[in-house]
């Protein structure tokens, strides 16, 4: 290795020693990432296949039992529905924001605000919605005063799937604005002018040019939103303090339960399932993004 590096493109002052020497300076970084990121991840993957220190598929088999499959299914439903809601509303909002002055105050404000709101989660977000639509919440009281009865029919729904979908949308929509807005810059005004000059109506422009060009970045962004919701934990953990309706909450139960022996292994298997799903989605996202980028140089 040292020998081949001497003839490399960069002129080196001190010769072959350099090819290994400079790389050593990366060791602190590599060791740190190795210990605190790679080892935990590998632990999850390896332990998922172990039982009492031996190779076993029993944990993996547990993943295909009714309770785990139901939690996985609900996680998928939650992630897919909030990805869809976030993607559609976020895309429309992005378009409306840039259709004003592209460099105007509206756009700059929307981008900054989205940056803040997309990071919003966990304790604060859960409290925010509990105090809004929960029992005695501001909106709940206002609507009850206006219509004379509790429009929401109690607050049980807030601590279950419908509540999670509502609350997750709060950070999914801004995330969509952040990732989708740059794609709208790829839709050149000249194309619209050219289409109009050739006699196309607004509808025709969108059907023949706008939507086909924006579909790849739209789908890619939706995938990112899916992964984002699938991996989210804090908000759901606060909102649903008991119960394990979705995969992350099932991991919490397995991790914190000290009653049932072997639950720790289940936590590894569930975490493995989560990392596989997210990794596959992110891989497709990156692949798709590269394809989409061809159009939007």
């Amino acid at each position: 290795m040292a020998l081949t590096a001497t003839g490399s493109d960069t002129p080196t002052r001190t010769g072959r020693r350099l090819s290994v020497g400079p790389s050593l300076a990366l060791l602190p970084f590599l060791v740190f990432v190795g210990i605190f990121l790679i080892i935990p991840t590998v632990t999850v993957i390896v332990q998922g296949f172990l039982e009492n220190g031996r190779f076993s598929l029993s944990n993996i088999e547990t993943l295909f039992t009714g309770t785990v499959m139901r939690a996985l299914w609900k996680s998928v439903v939650l992630s897919a529905s909030t990805a869809l809601i976030g993607a559609v509303i976020g895309a429309i909002a992005s378009y409306l924001v840039v259709s004003g002055n592209p460099d105007g105050l509206l756009r700059r404000g929307a981008v900054s605000l989205s940056g803040v709101l997309a990071q919003f989660g966990g304790v604060t977000l859960a409290f925010a919605w509990i105090t809004t639509v929960g029992l005695g919440g501001m909106l709940q009281r206002a609507l009850e005063a206006a219509f004379g009865y509790d429009v929401f029919g109690g607050s049980g729904w807030l601590y279950d799937m419908p509540g999670l979908i509502l609350v997750y949308s709060y950070f999914q929509i801004p995330l969509m604005v952040i990732v989708f807005l740059p794609a709208l810059n790829g839709l050149r005004p000249q194309w619209r002018e050219a289409a109009t000059n050739l006699g196309a109506s607004t509808w025709q422009f969108w059907k023949e040019v706008g939507i086909p060009v924006l579909t790849p970045p739209f789908l890619a962004s939706a995938l990112l939103l899916f992964a984002n919701a699938f991996a989210a934990y804090a908000t759901a953990a606060i909102l649903v303090s008991q119960g394990q309706i979705i995969l992350p909450l099932m991991i919490r139960a397995a991790l914190t339960s000290e009653v049932v022996l072997g639950q720790q292994n289940l936590a590894f298997a569930l975490a493995l399932e989560m990392v596989v799903v997210v990794a596959v989605v992110m891989w497709v996202y990156n692949w798709y993004l590269k394809r989409a980028a061809r159009w939007l140089q």
């Binding site: 991840t41 332990q47 991991i251």
Partner: peptide
Amino acid sequence: LCLLPLTIPALVIVVGIKN
């Protein structure tokens, strides 16, 4: 390596980081 934590959920790291 720097972008990897975007793909590996924090929850997964928590599960594996005990040791």
